[in-house]
C-alpha cells in the first residue's frame, strides 16, 4: 500500500472526512457505475453508492491494511447493493410490470439506466428498448450471478480481483458468470437474432 494512501486511511479512521474523500477521489464514477449495474433506476444507484460510502466510512476503523483498500471498498459497495436489491425486489417487479415506455414522454431520462460504452461515448447504445431489456434481464439474475456479471463483464474487473471482492474462488466466479451470461442470452435472444 502506498504511504500516501496509508496516511489518508489512518486520518480517515480518526474521522477525517477530507481524508476519506481523497481516498475515494477518482473512483466515484466507476463505483457509481457498479452501483448502477445493481439498481433499477439512476436514483436507486445513487442511493446505493452513497449508502455504501457511508457504510465504508463507518466501518473504516475495522479496515485491516492487509488487503487493498479498493478491494475492501468494492466489497462494501457490492454488499450494500445486494442488501438494497433485496429490499427493493418487490418494488422492482412493480416498476417492470407497470412501466410503459411508449406512454412515457421522457424515455431518455426514465427510471432505468442507459447503457453504453464509457470508453467510446460516440458509440453509446442509444436503443431505449435494448437498455430496458438489459435491465430486465439483469433483474432476473441471482445476487451472485449479478455481482459476477457486473464486476467482470460490465466493469471488466479481472476474475481474480472479482473473486477477492466476492470472497469466493475464481472457479465460483466463472460459474456465476457463465450462468449469468446464459440467462442474459436467453432473455436477449430477440436482439441477438
Amino acid at each position: 500500500m502506498e504511504s500516501i494512501e496509508k496516511d489518508l486511511i489512518e486520518a480517515a479512521q480518526q474521522g477525517n472526512v477530507s481524508a476519506f474523500e481523497q481516498l475515494i477521489n477518482g473512483t466515484e464514477r466507476k463505483m457509481l457505475s457498479i452501483a448502477a449495474g445493481f439498481a433499477a433506476s439512476p436514483d436507486d444507484a445513487e442511493d446505493i453508492y452513497q449508502d455504501a460510502m457511508i457504510n465504508a466510512f463507518r466501518a473504516l476503523p475495522k479496515f485491516r491494511k492487509d488487503s487493498q483498500f479498493s478491494t475492501w471498498l468494492y466489497r462494501i459497495l457490492v454488499n450494500t447493493a445486494i442488501s438494497s436489491r433485496r429490499k427493493l425486489k418487490s418494488k422492482i417487479n412493480r416498476l417492470i410490470t407497470f412501466y410503459d415506455p411508449q406512454n412515457d414522454e421522457n424515455t431518455s431520462i426514465s427510471g432505468y439506466e442507459q447503457y453504453g460504452s464509457e470508453s467510446n461515448p460516440e458509440a453509446q447504445l442509444s436503443n431505449d428498448q435494448l437498455s430496458k431489456a438489459i435491465n430486465k434481464a439483469l433483474a432476473s439474475l441471482s445476487d451472485k450471478e449479478k455481482i459476477a456479471f457486473v464486476l467482470c463483464h460490465q466493469q471488466e474487473i479481472k476474475i481474480v480481483d472479482a473473486a477477492q471482492i466476492m470472497g469466493c474462488g475464481e472457479g465460483s466466479v466463472k460459474s456465476y458468470l457463465f450462468r449469468a451470461r446464459d440467462k442474459m442470452r436467453s432473455q436477449l435472444q430477440s436482439f441477438i437474432g
Binding site: V17, F20, E21, E28, R29, L32, S33, A36, G37, P42, A45, E46, Y49, Q50, M53, I54, F57, E113, Q114, Y115, G116, S117, E118, S119, P121, Q124, L125, I134, H153, Q154, Q155, E156, M184, L188
Partner: peptide, 25 residues
C-alpha cells in the same frame, strides 16, 4: 453486449452525487 458495456454516468450526475455525499459524510 460487449465487455465494458456499462451504465453511463454523466458529469452532472456525478457532481450532484458527490455533493450530496459530501453533506452526508
Amino acid at each position: 453486449m460487449p465487455g465494458g458495456t456499462q451504465p453511463v454516468i454523466n458529469d452532472d450526475r456525478l457532481h450532484a452525487v458527490q455533493w450530496s455525499l459530501q453533506k452526508r459524510l
